[in-house]
């Protein structure tokens, strides 16, 4: 058995593979001591070959005998497994966003990752939803239903929050602000994709790909269809599990 574990900034994901088929997948909150959570999850598979990825991979390696790979490689492997023609991976997680360009045979040719700020990431969307009084699901729906939008200029999470406050105080309806935030993130992600590569067979992974409104906006901005896995948040863990099979 092969297990991939992805210790992300917000959640920990595991995927267990046997004979190439997904046997089990789990997603839990990272909590305050992510490695304890992770070790507990791994307790289910005592004899498996394990590969860790994500922010907590080094921490995990201090506590367990396992190999590590970066999120970039993990998402590339996972996306390619689900969509064998995939040439571009967009991964937007809790704390960063990445664009990975793959060669025809699946090698990583180049990648881009946001700098130290959390602009255009899951955490950013979460903060914006919170300041508008929505949960994540309502946030996306409200954005889809709104008819109008305003430009959000700031992509810094801190500044954007004050921008949202000033929009609220100008009487702009929350749905409209939600739409504006989505559009701003979509346009930033589109620019990041376009800067890195031609977006053919683009696979969108990470928890943020669950946001259908954002996916639709991004498709419109890029002018290409976007492939979203059934469960986009576990693609990194899947990639790690696949790597466990070949290491």
């Amino acid at each position: 058995m092969q297990v991939g574990i992805d210790l992300g900034s917000r959640t920990i994901k595991t995927v267990a593979l046997k004979g190439g088929a997904v046997l089990q997948r789990r997603v839990v909150e990272s909590g305050f001591e992510p490695h304890r959570q992770a070790l507990q999850l791994l307790g289910d598979h005592p004899r498996a070959r394990v590969v860790a990825t994500g922010y907590g991979r080094h921490l995990m390696q201090q506590h367990a005998d396992l190999d590590i790979i970066t999120e970039i490689k993990a998402h590339a492997l996972g996306a390619r497994h689900l969509f064998p023609h995939c040439r571009t991976v967009l991964d937007v997680g809790g704390q960063d966003s990445k664009v990975i360009q793959l060669s025809e045979n699946g090698r990583i040719v180049s990648f881009q990752m946001n700098d130290k700020c959390a602009a255009g990431t899951g955490r950013f969307l979460e903060m914006m939803a919170l300041s508008l009084g929505y949960d994540l699901k309502q946030f996306g729906l409200a954005a889809a239903e709104a008819q109008a939008s305003t430009a959000i200029n700031s992509m810094c999470a801190v500044f954007a929050e004050s921008e949202v406050v000033s929009l609220k105080n100008r009487g702009v309806p929350p749905g409209e602000i939600a739409r504006s935030v989505h559009l701003a993130v979509a346009s930033r992600l589109a620019a990041m994709v376009q800067k890195t590569c031609e977006s053919h067979h683009l696979v969108f992974t990470g928890g943020v790909a669950n946001n259908k409104t954002l996916v639709a906006m991004l498709e419109k901005a890029l002018g290409v269809p976007i492939l979203v896995p059934e469960d986009p948040s576990i693609v990194g863990a899947l990639g790690a599990a696949l790597h466990a099979g070949c290491s």
């Binding site: 922010y55 970066t70 970039i72 960063d96 990583i108 990648f111 990752m113 700098d115 130290k116």
Partner: peptide, 16 residues
């Protein structure tokens, strides 16, 4: 504060 992110990018570059 960005050491974690830089580590990821550098490691991914080495994987590349």
């Amino acid at each position: 504060d960005d050491v974690g992110q830089l580590q990821t990018r550098v490691e991914a570059f080495l994987e590349q």
